[in-house]
Simulated scan of single mutants.
Amino acid sequence: LESELFGHVKGAFTGAIRDKKGRFELADGGTIFLDEIGDISPAMQVKLLRVLQEGHFERVGSEQTLKVDVRVISATNKNIAEEIASGRFREDLFYRLSVVPLWLPPLRERRHDIPLLVEHLLRQILADAGRAGVTVSPEALDVMMSHDWPGNVRELQNWLQYALVKCRGDRIRPEHLPPVLRGATRLPMPARRLRKLDAEAVRAALEAAGGSKVEAARRLGVSRATLYRFLDGMGR
């Protein structure tokens, strides 16, 4: 991460075959967006604080100090107040970043945004896939409106991609949506009900989780051990 943000010089580490500018240097005079800011290490927090306070940094492996003028926008899905209280996030860094704070409620608390988000995301997905003219039926939209969306907008985007793969026509209907949305595996689900879980729901959860069994178990509302037992029964 340090090399990505601040760059490095040739020979700074194995694989550093040439000088490389970091994101801050590339963004000089403009804006840089730092996502998941709550996950950075304490050591990186110190380096980031220095850039915000002084506008100075060094590339990895270099003693030359560089100066930049960058506007920083950051985001996190963590409760920063709790992170500060636990000592995992620096309070001084928080106040440096929190000039104009914005809080975005989870998608389940702003369901009225779902139709607009579906329209916007579907347009993007269709463009990337080289398709056009596909819309979402009112019945499918009703299903989406009733879901709690623990993964927020990213989950919505994933399931729209899933539906588009299933849909061979020009209208996404409830049957094109994954079982998780249709109610076959409504979350959260007690582990004792896993035997009633069909293989399609498990495959859909694994697909949405990028193959991660830990994330798939979270989406299904079961423990990892329970999911592993189910997968063993499927011969996976």
Rank of each mutant, 00 (worst) to 15 (best):
L194R: 02
S74V: 10
G15N: 13
E4S: 14
D113R: 09
G210M: 07
L220S: 02
R203D: 15
G61R: 07
V99D: 04
L1Y: 02
M189C: 07
R88I: 00
T31G: 12
G235C: 10
E4T: 14
I17Q: 12
E175P: 00
L181P: 04
G235E: 13
R59G: 08
M145T: 06
L194A: 09
S86D: 12
G7H: 09
Q53T: 02
G169M: 08
F13P: 01
D39W: 03
V214G: 01
V9T: 14
A204Y: 03
D28M: 08
I84K: 01
R131Y: 04
R23V: 01
R203T: 11
A208W: 00
L1M: 14
L141N: 03
V180H: 02
D170M: 07
E155N: 08
E83T: 00
A199S: 15
A209E: 09
A85K: 08
I172A: 06
L206K: 11
P150D: 13
R90S: 11
E54K: 04
S3E: 13
R110H: 10
R131W: 07
S137F: 06
V68N: 06
P188G: 13
V9Y: 09
A132F: 06
Q53W: 03
I17M: 10
G151D: 09
R123Q: 14
P150M: 12
P174C: 13
Q45I: 04
S3K: 04
R110W: 07
A204V: 04
A75R: 10
